[in-house]
Write a protein that binds this DNA or RNA. Structure first.
Lengths: 147, 147
DNA sequence: ATCTTTGCAAACTTTTTGCACCAAT
DNA sequence: ATTGGTGCAAAAAGTTTGCAAAGAT
């Protein structure tokens, strides 16, 4: 178990004036146990194993609340659902358009790009918000399937 | 006018076995005249000025066809609509999360990152597919509004 | 007691699809 | 004459919202 992180998040909810409910406790637990790249629906399913009447809309609303207090971030990996993860996971996503696999890479890889965009364009990137699409090692020669 | 590009695209449609219809001609014209960053709905509106009964679904289907033959690409700039542009525009998008402004930067900026990801992870990026989010010069100090 | 959060159902937004008709080759 | 494209309406997919009831402080 990873109790510290959960407790820290629960505390953050309380500090922000939010209330700690069963649904939120379960959601935080699901987020901490998830390996990242989970959709709201994934999280809802996990939560619903123990608390079957927690509704998907509650998950969305709670994720929104957690995002507002900086605990959670979400990323659009392509078409369809967004994926959510804890904000303290400092990594980016590489999404293979051929096989669909998602790989995490350390944030540091983007530092050079960030510096260049800042110097040349005055643009400060917040890279976590979007994934980098392409093809992974095994799929490099094949054509990316349309998405 | 920019007739060469239109003609090249029309030819490409024909070469791919596709048919050159009024709707497609108008769509290609709208794409060429657009400054990039146009949604399917933007394009539909432009097309409908001259051809009011071209349906949004036709625009989607034609964009899809053009994307299949490599003429068009689309990008998700955040929540909501995707934006489409001609594939021969070699640039990326920087989207400011504060003021919403979209800035184009040359592809070359991403070469170093591409090389690093390829060497370290065997990952070949297709960067055009997603935008880089962050804050532009004027907005750098302000907090990005939640999106 | 108060004020937030919840469950539900329904709305909403963007994109896709089924189908019968039309049009390009 | 074929076969692919089109308009329309309706479905899908993902997310948001209004409301009254339930729950946390």
């Amino acid at each position: 178990v990873v109790p510290e992180r959960q407790d820290r998040i629960i505390a953050a909810i309380r500090e922000s004036g939010g209330r700690v409910t069963t649904a939120r406790r379960a959601l935080v637990s699901a987020l901490v146990r998830a390996d990242g790249h989970v959709t709201a629906e994934d999280l809802a399913e996990t939560v619903q194993k123990d608390h079957p009447d927690v509704h998907l809309s509650t998950v969305y609303r709670s994720l929104d609340a957690l995002e507002h207090i900086g605990v959670v971030d979400h990323v659009h990996l392509g078409h369809g659902r967004a994926v959510y993860h804890l904000a303290d996971e400092r990594h980016e996503h590489l999404v293979c358009e051929v096989c669909g696999r998602v790989q995490e890479v350390p944030d540091a890889i983007f530092e050079q790009l960030a510096a260049e965009l800042l110097e040349s364009y005055g643009f400060t990137i917040r890279p976590k918000h979007f994934a980098v699409l392409g093809s992974c090692r095994g799929c490099a020669t094949r054509t990316p399937s349309q998405n």
